[in-house]
Write a protein that binds this DNA or RNA. Sequence first.
DNA 1: ATTGCGGATAAGCGATCCTGATCGGCGTGC
DNA 2: GCACGCCGATCAGGATCGCTTATCCGCAAT
Lengths: 303, 303
Amino acid sequence: MDPHLLRTFVAVLDHRSFSGAAAALGYTQSAVSQHIAALEADLGSRLVERRPVAPTPAGARLLEHAPALLLRLDAARADIARLHQTRPTRLTVACSPAALGATVAGALAELRAVTHSLDVEVRVTGRDAVLADVVAGRADLGFVDGAAAPSDPLPMPDLGPMTTLAAAEETLAVLFPRDHPLAERRAVRLSDLTQAQWIDASDTAVPLDRLRAVCRAEGFRPRIRHRGTDLHGLAALTAAGHGLAALPLPVAAALPGIAAVPVSAPRLVHRTELVHPANPTAPARQLVDLLTTRRLAADAGRR
Amino acid sequence: MDPHLLRTFVAVLDHRSFSGAAAALGYTQSAVSQHIAALEADLGSRLVERRPVAPTPAGARLLEHAPALLLRLDAARADIARLHQTRPTRLTVACSPAALGATVAGALAELRAVTHSLDVEVRVTGRDAVLADVVAGRADLGFVDGAAAPSDPLPMPDLGPMTTLAAAEETLAVLFPRDHPLAERRAVRLSDLTQAQWIDASDTAVPLDRLRAVCRAEGFRPRIRHRGTDLHGLAALTAAGHGLAALPLPVAAALPGIAAVPVSAPRLVHRTELVHPANPTAPARQLVDLLTTRRLAADAGRR
DNA sequence: ATTGCGGATAAGCGATCCTGATCGGCGTGC
DNA sequence: GCACGCCGATCAGGATCGCTTATCCGCAAT
């Protein structure tokens, strides 16, 4: 199971085409065909159905492993590359949409005030892509958001040695269309909404399986899927009655056309966590330190 | 980064020798030397220090990824192999030492009573090896034990799609030598023992980093290391005053020469979880069903 | 100084992995 | 209905890779 073979395997199923995958990877169609044949010979079972191109059951199994494997391979390479390459004048931050709130933006501002001529790039992507970017070295650090019980960490797939650090906690809110019966409430119980219509916007809002997990309940069935990282588009869908979504209250309150109602039960918060590799680059470490001391100060003030 | 290269890389560092690794892998020493050279050329930095053979900093980074990568590669292969191979007359169960208690043994007995001529093999290994065995298809299912807050799941590294299921919960106990000042107590607070002498027996007893995690405290410094899966040996070490260890109360109470004192705070339990691949073999599914219905019955009885 | 151990290097050969060319099956448009 | 186009399979050939054998080199102990 050569990584190259795995790579063309996922490319083939991504493109639903051998020749398309070949073009994308810079191979000939012949090579791709041979790659798939080699994989199938190695594993002893047909992996992709041809014409139309689709995964067989065995191929579906492999698809659950291959992307994670390839990502971890990149992670290993990036981990080592970080050891020699040092460019302390550039900081790339990957960020899920709802994580880029006042806390993160403020910390970045402080960092730029402290550091002269720091070239900062903020990249807003989906939740999974944040992790992938950090792990593969395309970003120095990342901010991921999600819902969890207070002081519980967010669950992260382990893609190698990395550290997480709570960066911000806000109350969680549900987005309602303005004319919704519950829109005027002061608070809602999430467990009352399991049968409501929800928007599956796992890149932008809190993913539905996460809601299921924190409520320990089934339900939260998606009615429409929203891809991309655009909070306003999500709000527009909710406003038009396509379904509900969960976001941090400060973010939700600022969105037009919708009502944001805090979640009162179960007791949980929206938290954003900073995630960085075990051996971060210099400016990344600086931002981490900054957020840690901030947090310490906040804790001290609370007492 | 060919998996073969990674495999010889970890073998070289395991054996602390090129020629030793070559013998173990069935290569010549020359091939191993070339493998390492190829890896180093690919990653652009020296990975192992020669004479004596030891990992460089970059090599240490790679060592944090390579075993996980190789394991997941095996997992993918095993996942697919499970699809065709079907031998419903044999069941291999991997088990960490403290997990093999009355509940698990009882469930296995029930299964054998129900199923005619089922060839059962129980393999007791360290915690990590249980996961590895299940994931790589060397066992149909596994039982892992650990300490956690009540109804919290044990943290598991994600090595692919698998399912966990709580199999048993027991109170946690600390092993003391009989003449220890605390040996006569009815209960102890774990957080009072952070500075005590502990045995690092991560395969057999609850690992110390797990204790640190559930106590949210540093400490639990190891004074002696115990490898292997032998509970009596661990008890002997404790009896001789080498240090403390944490085990489920029923198991601990049966050990000779020591005193087992329940843990009263923080509120936590020793739990053993069943873990099986997303597509289990037939007898594995049968055991899972058996434990699920048992559990349902127990829950119903409790009400 | 010599010898032995352990890793590096060189040469050679078979296997592997690409490309380009061709074949074959299937759906489509005229 | 037929020819064509699309797409994947297969084949042949050349470059490269990866292993083995043989030899070299540096270090340490005697």
